[in-house]
Amino acid sequence: MAVDRSDIEKIATLARIKLDENSIPEITSSICDILALVDKMQLVKTDDIEPMAHPLDAIQRLRCDKVTEEDQREAFQQIAPQTEDGLYLVPKVIE
């Protein structure tokens, strides 16, 4: 499946990556090359095959519903770009 400029712009919006206008043709062409490589998968029939998510088909372990982590907000916020009163600051969302 080939992609065009509008597909790339749509995916970039979904992925929250601002693309430089000038780079779009090159990105589109390299992604087309990669998708052509990936499309070899379609040569094999897999209708009866169970998709594999984990190599050992392990299932998710559950733990007791108990508090195990301590509050480390201050330590975590020390490395944040901008905080105030224990909150992460971002540009205004609601006017």
Binding site: I11, A12, A15, I17, L19, D20, I31, I34, L35, P91
Partner: peptide, 27 residues
């Protein structure tokens, strides 16, 4: 705005190969 913060931080913070793979994955 918030969207500009996300999309420009990611555009400037990630290199070309990382961005390429994120885009393929998102697709």
């Amino acid at each position: 705005d918030l969207n500009d913060l996300y999309s420009r931080s990611r555009a400037e913070g990630f290199g070309d190969e990382v961005k390429r793979r994120i885009l393929i994955g998102a697709y």
